[in-house]
Structure formats: structure tokens, C-alpha cells
Amino acid sequence: MNTASDRTTSTAGTPGGLTHLDALEAEAVHIIREVAAEFERPVLLFSGGKDSIVMLHLALKAFAPAPVPFGLLHVDTGHNFPEVLEFRDRTVAAHGLRLDVAGVQEFIDDGRLAERPDGTRNPLQTLPLLAAITANRFDAVFGGGRRDEEKARAKERVFSLRDEFGQWDPRRQRPELWHLYNGRHRPGEHVRVFPLSNWTELDVWQYIGHQHIELPSIYFAHSREVFVRGGMWLAPGDWGGPRAGEPLEVRTVRYRTVGDMSCTGAVESTAGDVAEVIEEIAASRITERGASRADDRMSEAAMEDRKREGYF
């Protein structure tokens, strides 16, 4: 038998011959399988948005032909797009998955949370999320966050340790070397895991096109009644818009991200299919969050502050 020293030099970094989408897919699957193997109670955050849909698609592939060995968790702000909720429920049923819903509305109803004066519910998601993690004793929580989304996310590890209060401390992140992910944690702590860390918005769309992944219809151009607030096209709904002096108009729009209706803006677009969306994004001069998220405009470190508190 030959010994180890007989072996020759191997490639570093990306293995030759894989397309960049194949390499990203393999990396994400590797991460998802690591979690399934090393944690007792993982859960996948599923909002019905494109990143979580891609993440679920990867999880389904990672364990095929066996079922996905963990369930899904949705933090429902109570102001979600109906098309997205319908898509969520249909997807869960089609794959026989388990879904837990943590509702911001319940927390408001029983007084644990108070509605904010600006009506935005995005920051209110942290408490129900952490409560669900504690109640279900989840020890690993998959998130669809990508490093290209935002400058604080650009700094986060793939395995991101959270203390018993769910907090992220950016100054005390563990070193993360090679493909060795250290998921050890103490009782009460948990780990957020981001399999799509190295994907860009364009990669996600190219993968969606390549794999023929179905998305909620609102990601593609449609005509919709909208009104302007804070420089964004918002859709009317139970969440409290429009106010007086915010006239409705019909526009051809699509959504670049989907989240809480009160702070997720539509972009004017005629992109009706994946190829057209890819073309549009490649030519866009504005980031995804800049185009569609009011909550990040609040302050310079809005995302970092939310993450420190335990946000996604």
C-alpha cells in the first residue's frame, strides 16, 4: 500500500472544471450536510423569498432521495404579501415539510411587542424569532443571508455563533478556516448558518434559471396599485398604507426582495422572466437592498445593530 507521501499536489480553492454555479452549489450543500450531521435540532428559516427558496432547493437536493431532516420556520410579520404566503404553504405541502410560524401579530396582540410609530415591523421580528428558537430548542438556524447584501453581512462567518440572548458580537467572531466549520456551542447558545454566504444576487438568479426553480409571482413584472413613500413604491394593504396625501397609481413593477409590506418597495420593471430579470440586475446601478428596503436607510449601521440584537 502506498503511503501518504506518494500523493501529488492538489488544487487549492476552486476545483478545476466546475462552473462557478456548480462550485457555489457544492459549497452550500456541504454546509447544509455539516449542520444536519453535527447539530441536534436544526431549522431552516423560510420566508418564501428567493434566497430561502434557493436554500430549501439546495436542502432538498442535499438529502435526496431521503426527506430533508429538519423543518422550516417562518417569522411572519403579519404584513406579508398574500402571494408569498400562498407560495409558502404550497411549497411546504408539495414537499411534505414541517413548518413552524412565529407571528409578530401575536406578540403585538398580547402586549409583548408594541407597534412602532412608523408602522415598520421588520425590526419586530427579532423577539418572535428568538422566542421560537428557545421554545423549540433549535441549535442551528439556517438563514439565506448573503455577504454581498450589506456591509455588516459582508463580515459575518458562515457559522455565526449567537449567545444565549441570540446576540451577534462582531468583535468576537471565531476564526473560520478552510472548509472546517466549528459549530460547537454551549447550552442555550445557537449557531446561525449561512449556506449562501458567497452567492451574489446575480448568482441566485442564474441558479434559479439554471434549475428552473419556481418563485412567487411578485418577483416578475406585473401591474399593481402602488404609492410613493420615502422614495419607494409601496403596495397598499392592511399594514396601514396609504395615508392621506399618498395617492395610488397603477405601475408595472416587480419586487427585488420580499419582506414586510410596510418597508419593502417595488421597482419599476418590465422583466417578465428569469432571463429578463438577470439582464435587469446586471445593468442596475442600485443594490438590492438600496432599491427595496426602507429599514436599511434608517441609519449607517442599521443592519449591524439589528444583527447584534439577534436579527437574521
Partner: peptide, 29 residues
Amino acid sequence: LLTDGLRSEREQGITIDVAYRYFATPRRR
């Protein structure tokens, strides 16, 4: 400041943790 995105990095004017950025030219990613 494009990569020094953390609050304490901006306060101290130094990089504290690694930032990952993705870009492409027609020749390479």
C-alpha cells in the same frame, strides 16, 4: 469605508474583521 462596514471599524479607522466582496470583470470573477 466600502469594506470597513462595522461601527467600531469606522470609529477607529481600522479593519477588525475580514470583509468579503464579490466582483467580476469580463475576464474573471
